[in-house]
Design a protein around this nucleic acid. Structure first.
Lengths: 229, 229
DNA sequence: TAACTTAAGTGTATAATATACATTAATAAA
DNA sequence: TTTATTAATGTATATTATACACTTAAGTTA
């Protein structure tokens, strides 16, 4: 019978997490060295199996927490991967999730746990299964996301300079942006607070620090817009 | 053990298809009256279970074909739904797919099979499980798609008038568009062939028929662009 | 056959936005 | 005090989006 539940095939469901971070070296992803077979010892996305009593969103949160100690990370579902032999042990459909996090805020936890490690997107190691494809797909989604939602709050330290924000966008889009045009577009969004304080690390003159205005930022997250950079 | 395959929970995997069509009454979706329990007799998206030896993309194609006889329909994956009790019989994760098809080209097959029926998006019946949510989600995706890819080829008859194309976009975006601005934007894409032939149904003057220039259309599909309507 | 009705077809002026581009300012180091 | 380095800033031009109304073609009707 076409639709009998009893005769339908079951499969394992996995969740894999593409965690993006940013620091002064550029855009990074968080990987783990797999500690079980198959492919033990190879680099992998953070992943795990969906439990019986759990929805995918929560599985993603739980799995990330297990490997990194990270909490309260908001992730978005990306895509379901279902090639027959994508996992050689058993038929497994994997649903990918991606998130943006602030490396500085979270690095201590990560180092303490030693399970996860940051890699530059540009020179990440080869990954198991179809995880390379998942990462590429997530980068495409992240680039698109920059055109309809502001990005930055999740990836930058609380106080940051315009240059850091510019370099973040350049890293995500992997192209150079005109500084003056960038600044005026960002300012037109009205999501930043300019502080009196200056960062004196990067130059003799020093550059003003900014914070995100969380209320306005959240507001912009709700309504899509177009940001042509 | 955290990642043992043997202890992981398996689940059923389903695929549900949101099939969009368009005719002179507006944007439509294809639904079936469910012929098995639970919710037998209620309206539902076209759906079925993923088989052991099948990838999701192919399951979507097979399931659509089973219910409608439709062949060679290109579908895109949308989202995985995993609420615990979304299907009351058994834990089932459903991956949704959506497609755009041309009602005229395919209606004969559909009527022959009597399994599926078109409904206006605006006044479709209430659907089983979380299928209403899936449809809403697909409409959002479809609207977004209009801004980055041309639409029309899939939904219109081979020869069509500018008015039909305009009304298609108005139906998808559910807003009125300025006729002159619309025509000049569409013309600037250079994806249409204007025929000598006129459609004499709609007016005394008659209106020119167009076809899509498939090569240029496909080209535009490859490269994203922004079409502000 | 002239007047009428109906939808088709067309262009322009203005506003908004995107882009390209170079100089001055502030400060610490030499 | 000179030098070196990065920060900060504005404007002119090109492109694109928007708002808007009249004429044309042809069948129908008086």
């Amino acid at each position: 019978m076409l639709n009998s539940y009893s005769s339908a095939d079951k499969a394992l469901l996995a969740v894999d997490c593409i965690i993006f971070g940013f620091d002064n070296e550029g855009l990074k992803i968080l990987l783990i060295k797999r500690d079980f077979e198959p492919e033990k010892g190879k680099w992998s996305l953070i992943g795990g199996f969906l439990k019986r009593d759990e929805v995918l969103d929560n599985a993603a949160i739980r799995i990330l927490n297990t490997y990194t100690g990270l909490n309260d990370i908001y992730m978005e579902q990306l895509y379901a991967y279902s090639e027959i032999d994508r996992d050689p042990v058993e038929r497994t459909i994997s649903v990918s999730y991606y998130a943006l996090i602030n490396i500085e805020n979270h690095n201590a936890e990560l180092i303490k746990n030693y399970h996860a490690q940051w890699f530059s997107v540009a020179d990440a190691p080869n990954l198991i299964f179809d995880h390379n494809e998942m990462v590429e797909h997530a980068i495409r989604r992240l680039r698109y996301r920059t055109s309809i939602k502001p990005i930055g709050f999740e990836l930058l330290p609380e106080k940051f300079t315009m240059r850091q924000l510019l370099e973040l966008y350049e890293a995500i889009l992997s192209k150079e942006l005109d500084k003056r045009n960038f600044i005026s577009k960002i300012n037109s969004l009205e999501i930043l607070n300019k502080l009196e304080e200056k960062d004196m690390q990067s130059s003799r003159k020093g550059s003003y620090l900014y914070t995100f205005n969380k209320e306005k930022y959240e507001e912009k997250l709700l309504n899509d817009f177009v940001l042509n950079l």
